[in-house]
Amino acid sequence: MFEARLSSTLTLKKIVDALRDILNQSTLDCSDTGIQLQAMDNSHVSLVCLCLRSDYFEKYKCSRNVSLGLDLKSLTKVLKCANGDDAVTIKAADKADKIELSFESAGKERTADYELRLLNLDQEHLAIPETEYSCVIHMPASEFARICRDLAVFSESVVIACSKNCIKFSANGEMGSANIKLSQTSKAEVTLQVDEPVTLSFAGRYLNTFTRATPLSEKVKIGMAADVPLLVEYPIEDYGYIRYYLAPKVDD
């Protein structure tokens, strides 16, 4: 039996919004420690990992590990039926073929129950090694979203170059070029920890998709090292995170 309650449906909506442009369907792995999701996009260019610890939830019960295969479009449709400030309870029986979502209004005068059919999805798990990133950048999530959006106008590829003094985002296309540099700020809105300078090239379309997680977090962490995927991490308060990994582009 699995049961998890959140006091606000809005956070669940934000989490699903951060996933649904990259994944159509995915499996939530629920255990007594919390909820995890790991999946590659259809093109196998990026990987997304969601981790929510059990103490993120107002109530959390998971007597046996369950895997819930979900169609994220359908889940979005159900979440649209709820107000952001409704409390939401997700329930699934052992070996269930559906989950139940119950929404309760803030004043408790309205409850609405929905059932969503589960999918049997082939699951492929990848082991993600602990990586020592040569460059770790923290910046406001809204700033990162703005940069990704602005650069997408110029080129499919975005070059990220991180050095001791600054991080530079560049795009170069037929229309022209764009270069955006950020230095570490005294207010620590932007911080750079650089052991070795790194320059890598990435598909801007994916970076833009990752920024769908912006409403979840004030800050974003970016990790870069030579010849490894880019890490873009959005913390979910102190209880978990969404991490996106993006394979670099290499010279042909």
Binding site: M40, L126, P129, Y245, P248, K249
Partner: peptide, 14 residues
Amino acid sequence: QSKQTSIASFFTKV
């Protein structure tokens, strides 16, 4: 010209 690599090539299957 740059070529997109696959994320699966960086991580091992479990």
